[in-house]
Write a protein that binds this DNA or RNA. Structure first.
Lengths: 218, 218
DNA sequence: ATAAAAGTTTAGGTTAGTCTAAAAAAATTA
DNA sequence: TAATTTTTTTAGACTAACCTAAACTTTTAT
């Protein structure tokens, strides 16, 4: 069984490597975890012996299939707990992270099974991030333009079709960001513009063009 | 803030001292925690410096007001989590202890506040043990062993003295649970065993040992 | 009352995880 | 290509929590 620290390293390496795609450097890990490169080198050797990562001195680390699975299980637990905190205990988005960071290390497969069931087998956490299933499978959600979403349905902003900086600046100005939740309140027939609510808080109008360039998942 | 280990020591000392009433010896702590006397001595010095216990070499330790409060907060968390596991996640009695043992160390006052509210401010956990409130106050219930209850008097099962999972499994097998109503129909002189009726429905025989380990209120 | 037994503490060592400072390797620049 | 800078690793130390073995108190028994 992995220690809390080992789990945190794996989770970080998984994230920094874009899910295992690329190698990660010692200093990246150190910066990301607020620790020192020397400490990372030590841990990386340890994880390497356990075959959770492969490590070539001076060239960085790659996560193995085994390590990837462990990382996914920690992420699964984190996201299930976040869902619990928001949906059941009425935490707000910004309060959940630190607590979930602790809860994700509780060791009990039965607990996670039952929590998953209690929450109704959610596929995404409150930030819209997908929750890996018990086999580590992540449901790839089809991204569609916001314009195709039905009224009053929650949608999570995933990406933009047109990545021009003026568009991005406009989005951030009105409070839209990757991960934001959007619900369409009304479609204006006249010009296809939408009245939407962002993060259950802020109501704004956006044009049809904007809604066709925002890619979301349900 | 206390470490996980410090919390566990305090909890054990609180329990062994009957809630702070009497002093506890090094070896008692060591036995109870499956550790060695030398390790206990080390920790006891540490807790003493933090004014959580008072420690006189060779004469044992007494828990201070401060230490008692810390212990009560850990117990509060443990029992709230056990209640959550049984009431919400449908764990059975005997499955909850190890998980609650981990969950009790999560640090977040807000989490415990919200969990308490979510559970409807329970005053006792699924084993019938009282849950300290956020100020550390415990509601005192006058509990007596079932063996001391008169014939044909209704009694409510509140807790068990011996919480071993084999005992809990046995109880649930014969249909006894916290909150059950029990009436003694007959005392068998020969061995002190009892014929009882559970919830005015099911008649069973239980040994003297069992009746002495079942704590009830009238 | 004193010797043996029981219990407790001290001394010294281990492991996991961390750190700083110095050495070594790789990358960059002149 | 050689020198300098950056990055990484090694070396050596620290802390928390644990251990064993030896020394020291206290208790018990003869």
């Amino acid at each position: 069984m992995l220690s809390l620290t080992e789990e945190n390293y794996l989770k970080t390496i998984y994230r920094l490597s874009d899910g295992g795609a690329k190698a990660v450097l010692t200093n990246e890990i150190a910066d990301s975890m607020n620790t020192k490169a020397a400490s990372v080198t030590d841990m990386v050797k340890k994880l390497s012996v356990k075959d959770l990562i492969s490590y070539e001195p001076y060239y960085g680390v790659k996560i193995t299939r085994l390590g990837k699975n462990e990382a996914l299980m920690v992420i699964r637990k984190h996201r299930l707990w976040e869902t619990f905190l928001v949906d059941k205990l009425k935490f707000s988005w910004d309060e959940v992270h630190d607590v979930a960071e602790q809860l994700e290390h509780i060791q009990s497969p039965l607990l996670i099974e039952k929590l998953d069931e209690f929450l109704g087998y959610p596929t995404a956490d409150p930030h819209g991030h997908p929750i890996p299933d018990k086999n580590g499978k992540i449901q790839i959600l089809k991204q569609v333009p916001l314009s195709e979403i039905a009224l009053n349905k929650k949608a999570f902003v995933r990406s933009v079709k047109d990545g021009s900086s003026s568009f991005l600046q406009y989005l951030s100005k009105i409070g839209i960001y990757i991960g934001a939740t959007i619900t369409i309140l009304e479609r204006i027939e006249f010009d296809g513009s939408l009245e939407i609510v962002i993060d259950n808080k802020k109501k704004v109008f956006i044009s049809r063009d904007v809604s066709e360039n925002l890619l979301v998942t349900e």
